[in-house]
Design a protein around this nucleic acid. Structure first.
Lengths: 205, 205
DNA sequence: GCGATTTTGTACAATTAGGCACAAATCTGG
DNA sequence: CCAGATTTGTGCCTAATTGTACAAAATCGC
């Protein structure tokens, strides 16, 4: 693997390639080309070749890429060739939906705990999970060595909980709260806000 | 307003600025600076000034920006100075969560219909909505002149429904299905896939 | 076996995006 | 009213990203 620093913009595309490849594998396909991948994900073939070649020479001229092999390599690069324990903070509708979502398991993630600060919710069950008190968040996260959290809270409390997560050692936060979170440089945040995403399209209507 | 084409990357940042400004306004603030906005959203002040200046001279030297005025301008630019009717296709957990979400109203969106193809779900209520049959999707969307849809379906049926939405005149799709959708050039898609977003962070762990 | 075809990886060119720095305008506090 | 501080909008430069094109390798059809 090339030891130079890989631009983040390339890293953001790799999971999209991986998802498309896993779908091809599910359909029984064995090989693909940068052209076919590009058609599927809406990215130029040259871009895909260049992105992949940052990490090694995984393709074969005339043939393309072995789907299974490329999946293995991408999973390794993205560090999802293992299972990551993930917590959910916020047991509202979105927290419930994520807790029940079946799509994490085969993509490297395993939800292990759910927290809320609402006394009426604490102790209730969501599937196999019992909603825990955010008062115990730092202690529980530290003890279980959790590195990834999904935040499904109102904006008003999101930054406060984020600070606790950082204190507890969390290094990656998927934020569903409609607010920009402030974190130290060694912590990554991804934002999911449906209204923001919709507003990125209305400009073009 | 500058008549030249505005890069998409700038458009993607505007909703983040708008969200931060609305939050400031809710907190009773009247003016802000590119510096303060930048601190809040994690973007350089120069970048914010340059982005905003693409659309006009909305700031005042020495003072900064009037929050209310800038909100009005951004809403106008993003075309969310009006209400957009939006439909949800897929009445699973995610569809339910979006249907009940209270955060759309003050950001320009109004959910008006929910569809599913599951005979057991059709006719059921989610709040004030009755789940409708996707068999009537094209007809209903055309009649109501809907331009925006949120897709909360399994990957296996997402492309088929997308084709129907496009046929019905939908021009913006917020896709929660874990698959890249193929659409004509005049239709916009934004993807929300929690596993993909998480995989964009594990690389750095 | 061999010419035609496919496809990768990459060098080079072109384009796009971002950072810096400063003149000009405005405000603030005597 | 004035000196010092603040803050915008932008010209210029650098960095980052994407596109083009092609040699080299591999396959395919006969």
């Amino acid at each position: 693997m090339n030891a130079e620093k890989i631009p983040n913009i390339i890293i953001t595309r790799l999971p999209v390639y991986l998802r498309a490849l896993q779908r091809m594998a599910d359909n029984g396909l064995k090989t693909t080309s940068s052209q076919e991948m590009g058609d599927r994900v809406g990215i130029s073939a040259a871009q895909i070749r260049k992105d992949i070649s940052q990490f090694g020479e995984f393709g074969k001229q005339g043939t393309g890429y072995s789907i299974d092999y490329l999946i293995d390599k991408l999973r390794e690069i993205l560090k999802v060739d293992r299972m990551w324990d993930v917590i959910i903070v916020g047991a509202g509708d979105m927290g419930h939906a994520l807790a029940r979502y079946q799509g994490f398991a085969n993509r490297g993630f395993n939800v292990v705990m759910i927290f809320d600060n609402d006394k009426n919710k604490i102790g209730q069950k969501i599937g196999d999970f019992t909603i825990e008190d955010t008062a115990n968040l730092v202690e529980r996260v530290k003890a279980a060595d959790i590195k990834i959290a999904m935040l499904t809270l109102p904006a008003s409390v999101a930054q406060g909980i984020t600070d606790k997560l950082v204190e507890a050692g969390v290094r990656a936060i998927l934020n569903y709260a409609p607010i920009s979170l402030s974190v130290p440089e060694n912590v990554k945040v991804q934002h999911i806000d449906p209204a923001t995403h919709l507003q990125r399209m209305t400009y073009y209507l």
